[in-house]
Design a protein around this nucleic acid. Structure first.
Lengths: 140, 140
DNA sequence: GTACATGCAAAAGTTTTGCAGACAT
DNA sequence: ATGTCTGCAAAACTTTTGCATGTAC
């Protein structure tokens, strides 16, 4: 439950702490990986009046502050999740749509090679791997 | 330039071979990884009357036929590329937006481990890795 | 009090759907 | 001839923008 001190980070930039910003950040932590739409719904359960526009603007801000990131999991809308804490990548099954997480260690060798060969710094929290999951693979 | 016989695949399903379908598939091969919008522009250069709707419908069909796949490279629109031939993954720089390709061999160990540990069959042609490229990393 | 944030409404952009006419077979 | 495809128009979504009001500081 480390909140990485939103108030301080905001203050350091001369920005303001608002209920909306706290709620959106909380929702991102609660939901794990969620679309703007889903976050909107979640926030609304606590504060009914919050506008979807604010969700988008706040997510952009939080991402800029380094508190959240987003990934494109197959479909149209991106999903947001907290940064830091649990760095992890996503495994997305194209058949059943299931999303599972994998530990960063699995990607470490790859990240190392990319850095060495290309100078490319892999953002592990941003990785989405597509394919067929065990269940769907067997059935076929 | 192996065309993987579009006519035959269509016929086998009782579907029809049209100029539009040939043009869209050709464009996907030519452009490498392109958004529906970009494909539309490319196709229009040859056949001006083709509608964007047809691009979407055709891409869906071609994907269903296993001739093309799509990947989500950062922004809103997905990009489509041919299946088979040159299996490759994408490296996307979040700072400058540059997209480069990496050879499938780099991903082979990872693919192997995922298959072994999770029974997950990684679709290499679908992989998009985000991070910071060499140029942007140095500058900072 | 002042500048930043939010809500609202509208715009912009993307993807989907319905339907009548065109066309491959 | 017949059933599939396409183009057109409109609808459904998602995301962005402008502006007046509200509010943290």
């Amino acid at each position: 439950m480390s909140e990485t001190s939103l108030p301080e980070i905001l203050r350091a930039r001369g920005l303001r702490l608002t209920a909306q910003r706290q709620l959106v950040l909380e929702a991102v932590h609660e939901l794990g990986h969620a679309t703007p739409e889903q976050l909107h719904t979640a926030v609304r359960e606590v504060a009914a009046g919050v506008n979807i526009t604010t969700i988008y603007r706040t997510l952009e801000l939080l991402e800029d502050l380094g508190l959240v990131t987003h990934t494109h999991l197959s479909h149209g809308s991106p999903t947001y999740h907290p940064v830091g804490e649990d760095q992890h990548a996503h495994l997305v099954c194209r058949d059943c749509g299931a999303v599972s997480e994998i530990e960063p260690e699995v990607l470490a060798p790859l990240a190392g090679e990319l850095a060495k060969e290309r100078g490319f710094r892999l953002d592990i929290g941003h990785v989405a791997l597509f394919g067929t999951c065990g269940d769907c693979g067997e059935t076929k």
